[in-house]
């Protein structure tokens, strides 16, 4: 009995060591690749139709950062289902509320992912959904306030397996 316990501990130790070794070399590989990427294209290349869509929102307005909290994974393993939570800071009163929240994708075949229309009835400007990401890219969230303020937030998501059909 004692022998078998001893052996299993040894096995576990060697297993852990082996795993650590593998993890380290994987990380080395990953970081060297990230370094190479940094030299090539960073931030991720944005599509022309995305730039066009973004410019439509930005003409004549200076967007404000820091009013929207976007919860997106840093690394999305499956680009077909990427959960997104958006919370815009707003009292949601008649005088000052979020009218629209837009999600724009900088690397999908279609830039406009969704538009949500809100009103003071919502009480809180918080929406949740699941989106497709064709590849690693920036996700831009815009919130149009009733006061005329345009809030913006930019998130970068690395995608392991792209939602290639998006």
């Amino acid at each position: 009995m004692a022998d078998s316990v001893h052996i299993s501990i040894l096995n576990r130790r060697s297993f852990i060591l082996a795993t650590l070794g593998a993890a380290c070399s994987a990380q080395l590989f990953a970081s060297s690749r990230a370094f190479a990427d940094a030299g090539a294209v960073l931030p991720f290349e944005r599509t022309a139709h995305f730039e066009e869509a973004l410019q439509k929102f930005l003409t004549g307005v200076t967007p404000v950062e820091g009013l929207i909290a976007v919860d997106l994974p840093e690394i999305a393993e499956n680009g077909n289902f990427v959960p997104i939570t958006i919370v815009a800071e707003s009292p949601m009163t008649d005088a000052d509320h979020v009218r629209k929240i837009h999600i724009l994708s900088s690397g999908n075949p279609v830039a406009s992912v969704a538009t949500f229309r809100l009103s003071p009835l919502n009480g809180t400007a918080r929406v949740q959904s699941r989106m497709r990401l064709a590849r690693s890219q920036d996700v831009i969230v815009l919130a149009e306030m009733s006061t005329g303020v345009l809030a913006i937030a930019t998130m970068t998501v690395k995608v392991t397996i792209g939602g290639c059909q998006s």
């Binding site: 077909n80 289902f81 075949p109 279609v110 538009t115 949740q128 699941r130 497709r132």
Partner: peptide
């Protein structure tokens, strides 16, 4: 909500209401 093709299959949407 106005959705585009960038929303996942079996769309999940949540919002708040007072």
């Amino acid at each position: 909500a106005e959705l585009g093709p960038g929303i996942s299959a079996n769309p999940y949407i949540s919002f708040q209401l007072r």
